[in-house]
Each structure stands twice: as C-alpha cells, then as structure tokens.
C-alpha cells in the first residue's frame, strides 16, 4: 500500500477515535441527565421503599468488583493484541466477556428480586428512576458485550488488521467509560442511597 493511502488510513482511524471520544461525551450528557432525574425524583418514594430499604450493599460491591476486574482484563486483552499475541488477546477478551455476563446476571437477579417484592418500577418515581438509570447502564454493557463478541469472532477468524485493532481499542475505551459510569452509580445511587 502506498504512502498516501497509508496516511489516509491513519487519518481515518484517528478521526474515528476522536469521533468515538465525542460520542462518549454525548453519552456522558445522557447519563448526567439520568442522574439529574434520579436526584430530583429520589425523594418521591410515594410511601414505598427508599434506597436504604432495598439496596444490598455487599451484593452490589461484588458486582462492582466484577466490573472493575473486567476493565483490567480488557486492558490486558488490548495490550496482548497490540503486541500481536492473538491467543492471549482472545483469552483475555473471553474472560472479560464472562465477567460482563456475570455482572448482567447479577443485576438482573437484583431487579427480579425487587419486582417479586412488589418494588418494581411502577411503584414510585424513585423506583422508576432507579431502575431506568441502572438498566440504561446495563443496556450499554449489553451492547458492549455484543461488540466484544463480534471482535472476538473476528479475531478468531481473521488475523488482526489495524481496523480490528482500532475497533478493539475503541471497545476497551467504551468498557472503561462504562466502568466509570458504574462508579458514579455505585456512589450516588447505592452508597448515598443507603446512608439516607
């Protein structure tokens, strides 16, 4: 491939990276809005439970650890990919994927428990905003997992091209971003909620 073509491809990758960072910024605004809604509606418990009544902090702590570790493993996967170690990259990505699934399963079980107790999203504005904020994060995780699956499959079937490496680094960026959002959720929703 000639020089100008290479340069053009590099510029394209750089642009995609910037575009993705900017997309993450808009996603930040999205989550900020959901946090604002949560903050406003938190007192609206309508005679139903508040955060202190329903949050199981030890459980959530395990969830958080799972997600944090998965951030670490996706980083390892990216490093391995950058250095050309295909098998390690796939392995670490699979571990990340499994950790992500674990997180989601735990979250869904938490939701199911609440719904079974009659504390679903219909009960009050507080519960509506809790479920929506946490589920929106969960939805993003699910999208990330789908993306991860696609990357893993492509890694297995084709050797990396720089486009795949580019996609993987954007995915790991996304994953870290979701981790950061989770920290906020953990602190603002669960921790602060349990204290009041």
């Amino acid at each position: 491939m000639d020089i100008s073509r290479q340069k053009a491809e590099q510029e394209t990758l750089q642009r995609k990276s910037i575009g993705f960072w900017i997309y993450l910024m808009t996603d930040c605004v999205l989550f900020a809005t959901l946090f604002a809604v949560f903050a406003v509606l938190r007192p609206g418990t309508a005679g139903g439970p508040s955060g202190a009544d329903i949050f199981d902090l030890p459980f959530v702590l395990v969830e958080t650890m799972v997600l944090l570790v998965s951030s670490f493993t996706v980083g390892l996967g990216l490093l391995a990919a950058r250095y050309g170690y295909k098998r390690q990259a796939i392995a670490w990505l699979v571990v990340t994927f499994l950790l992500g699934i674990t997180f989601l399963v735990m979250e869904i079980s938490e939701f199911r428990h609440l719904i079974a107790e009659g504390d679903g999203w219909q009960r009050s504005a507080f519960l509506s905003s809790y479920f929506t904020l946490v589920a929106t994060h969960g939805l993003h995780i699910a999208v990330g997992l789908l993306w991860m699956l696609v990357v893993i499959i492509r890694l297995i079937r084709f050797n990396f091209k720089h486009t795949d490496l580019g996609r993987l680094s954007l995915l790991s960026l996304f994953w870290h971003f979701l981790d950061v959002i989770w920290i906020f959720i953990f602190s603002i929703v669960y921790l602060m909620g349990s204290l009041s």
């Binding site: 509606l41 219909q122 009050s124 509506s128």
Partner: peptide, 21 residues
C-alpha cells in the same frame, strides 16, 4: 425515553401521583 416509559410500562417520571413530577 422517560415519557415513553411512563406510557409503555407505567413508570412514574411525570405522572401526577406516586412521586412523579
């Protein structure tokens, strides 16, 4: 999205009761 959730699955973001605003 929140308005549609109110309308689809009975959340209470903007309802007149149950804490909505």
């Amino acid at each position: 999205a929140l308005l549609s959730l109110d309308r689809l699955i009975d959340t209470n973001f903007f309802t007149t009761t149950l804490g909505g605003s």
